[in-house]
């Protein structure tokens, strides 16, 4: 079941558009930059600002000075990540006066701007990461902030697999089914409006597929299964998985 975050301390939520993060590829790896627009929030000038980068269990934290004087650290290289695919950011504004350490404002699950990530890559609904997940070929990894598609890094040209027509035809409809089932059944989550939440993003995507319609209000297992199947059908039609696969599959001869 999803965890509820109760806000007893009037912690402010930073909007995504107020933390504009970009990634730049350099000879020494990826460097992030962030443009913070915190003036409209009622925050004390001596409160400290931190930027945290994370993915799965990997994590790095950077101090950005104080609200009254934001100071970007000189070294903003992401050294703790072997790739930047799926890396998210969290902005924290923390009280430096009594009570020290109180979280005054937070923005979480922030993706870097798509046009600034790497060369030609995009921030997608399903980031792909390469890992040695032997003996499996692919796997989904769910955490609180996103779902990642893991591809076995020991495969030749592993990074191309997620774009391969056969793989897409055989695997992606199943991925859609697993993710929607996870959101609707396992996590009992229905909100399509909170587009900062990966689950809402997926539900919004699914409801936008032709002929799928809104998530059923009836929480019965049967109606959810039917809705998920209609989403998988629509996804398969949109991506022409059967036709694409038929072009490749020659009957196993």
């Amino acid at each position: 079941m999803p965890k509820r975050r109760l806000n007893f301390t009037k912690r402010q939520r930073l909007a995504r558009e107020d933390a504009n993060i970009s990634l730049i590829e350099s000879d020494s790896g990826y460097i992030f930059d962030v443009v913070l627009n915190l003036a409209k929030y009622d925050l004390p000038i001596d409160a400290t600002v931190f930027v945290e980068a994370y993915r799965q269990t990997q994590y790095e934290r950077f101090s950005f000075g104080r609200i009254g004087l934001i100071q970007k650290p000189d070294d903003r290289r992401l050294t703790g990540f072997d790739s930047v695919e799926g890396v998210k950011f969290r902005i924290k504004v923390v009280s430096s006066a009594d009570p020290v350490g109180l979280l005054l404002a937070e923005g979480d699950g922030i993706s870097p701007r798509a046009d600034e990530v790497g060369s030609g890559s995009t921030v997608s609904l399903l980031p792909v990461v390469l890992q040695d997940i032997s003996p499996q070929i692919w796997s989904l990894d769910f955490d609180e902030q996103q779902v990642l598609l893991q591809i076995n890094s020991t495969l030749a040209n592993a990074s191309a697999l997620a774009r391969d027509k056969t793989f897409i035809a055989l695997v992606f409809p199943t991925i859609v089914r697993i993710i929607l089932n996870r959101i609707l059944v396992h996590e009992d989550y229905r909100d399509v409006d909170d587009l900062e939440d990966w689950r809402s993003q997926w539900l919004a995507y699914a409801t936008g597929l032709p002929g799928v319609g809104n998530v059923p209000k009836d929480r019965g297992q049967g109606s959810l299964d039917d809705w998920i199947e209609s989403a998988v059908d629509s996804f398969s039609r949109c991506h022409q998985v059967l036709g694409g696969f038929s072009d490749i599959w020659q009957g196993g001869e």
Partner: peptide, 17 residues
Amino acid sequence: MEQFNCTWDFHSLNSDQ
């Protein structure tokens, strides 16, 4: 700790706090 994590920045606190 999971609950407190919504309210406090643990990195800013020491273990006794």
